[in-house]
Amino acid sequence: MDDLEKILSLAEKSTGGIESTGNIITQIYRQYIAKYNAADQYLNEVIKEKGKPSAKDMEIAARLYAVPKMRRHYKNIANILVRADQLYEQWKPQKDEMRKAPEDDWIDYFLDRVKTVSDETVQRLWACILTQECFEQGTFRRVMLDRLALLDRSSAALFQILCDLTYDIEVSDGRNYSVPLYIRDTELCKMIHNTCIDFTEEDAMLYKNYFSINDRVLHGSEIEEELEVLQEIGLVNLSEENDESDIYSIENIEFTVSTENKKFKVLPLYDEKQEVYYVVTGCMTFTKIGLELYKALKKQIVKPLFFLKLVESFMNYGEFQK
């Protein structure tokens, strides 16, 4: 058996379980470090046979220690590359053109941040980021990759939900916005009891139940806590309680709201004190990083069936028509 075969054989044996201990934290650590025990096992065998390990033996032990971690890293990277290839085939234009690859420095930076990502939900986001960067170089700068590397399974799943619940607003003066529609429970209750719109308790529950992560529906403060994590990461801006986000103009202009292929007009409201026209958009907006990530995900988003009615009801909500 050559050195490589010995390395791979011992690395496979190193993934077995260990005896439990009374200390749960110690047990967790031992279970983790057991994956890398092949190096110790190899050196113990060498010492028994030779009495002292050689420089070559130490090199083999070092490689043994690295094998399990490298396997996991390469597996994670491979999964993301496979997903990115699939997305590229879906997104490429009809007349595909040769595109310049991202710079080596960017690729190195990207791989360093994705190699430890094993969760499929987060891997899907990174695959979208890589694919978008191949289409439009410079979309995701290094500082953006650093912020996105903070996403875990829950925050990534919640961001995906917000993307599903995002609508577009075109302003007649040329401005365009993509807005994640987040409505707090207090406003949902007011919408249900508002006689100016056709919005029922069942409609509200469809919306609330959509905030489901890992097969568990989040409620009230749980959603707020998870959204605050996204805000700390730098993907969204969350408004204060009893406050809403708005789009303003000093001129009486027209707003066009759209979701997928559906569009409708919205008349602006007027604030006499500030002398501005505005439209209320919800309790949240994307940051620049969040918006770029949404654009990368947009091509594969399927809006929930209830979403169009929800947006129309929210925009016509009588509470905002004062």
Rank of each mutant, 00 (worst) to 15 (best):
L4W: 12
E5W: 07
I7G: 03
L8M: 14
L10A: 05
L10D: 06
E12Y: 13
K13H: 07
T15M: 14
G17W: 01
S20H: 02
I24D: 07
I24G: 00
I24S: 10
I28F: 04
Q31A: 06
Y32W: 13
Y32T: 14
A34D: 10
Y36E: 11
D40T: 13
N44F: 04
K50P: 01
G51S: 04
G51D: 10
P53V: 10
P53A: 07
M58Y: 13
E59P: 00
E59D: 10
R63G: 00
L64F: 06
Y65R: 12
A66N: 08
V67R: 07
M70Y: 09
R72V: 09
H73E: 15
I80C: 06
L81C: 01
R83E: 14
A84W: 02
A84K: 06
D85V: 06
Y88V: 03
Y88S: 07
E89P: 00
W91K: 08
K95A: 14
D96P: 01
D96Q: 14
P102A: 08
D104R: 09
I107L: 15
F110M: 12
L111G: 02
L111K: 05
D112V: 09
T116I: 10
T121L: 05
Q123Y: 03
R124Y: 05
C128M: 11
I129E: 07
G138D: 08
T139E: 03
R141E: 15
L145T: 08
A149M: 07
A149D: 10
L151E: 05
D152Q: 15
S155K: 10
A156R: 04
F159T: 01
L165W: 00
T166L: 09
T166H: 04
D168W: 01
I169F: 00
G174C: 12
R175D: 10
Y177M: 03
V179E: 08
P180L: 06
Y182M: 08
Y182N: 05
R184G: 09
C189F: 01
M191S: 09
C196E: 14
D198F: 03
D203Q: 07
A204N: 04
A204D: 07
K208L: 11
N209S: 13
S212F: 00
I213Q: 08
N214F: 02
R216W: 00
V217Q: 11
V217P: 01
L218D: 02
I223C: 12
E225N: 05
E225W: 01
E228F: 08
L230E: 01
E232T: 14
I233S: 10
G234L: 07
G234A: 08
L238M: 07
E240S: 07
E241G: 00
N242Y: 13
E244N: 09
E244R: 14
S245L: 11
F255K: 06
V257A: 11
S258G: 13
S258H: 03
N261A: 14
K263Y: 02
L269Y: 11
E272Y: 10
K273E: 15
Y277C: 02
Y278E: 06
T281N: 00
M284H: 09
T287K: 12
T287I: 13
L293S: 04
L293G: 07
L297F: 11
K299S: 11
Q300H: 11
I301K: 12
L305E: 15
E312Y: 02
S313V: 06
M315H: 06
Y317V: 08
Q321K: 12
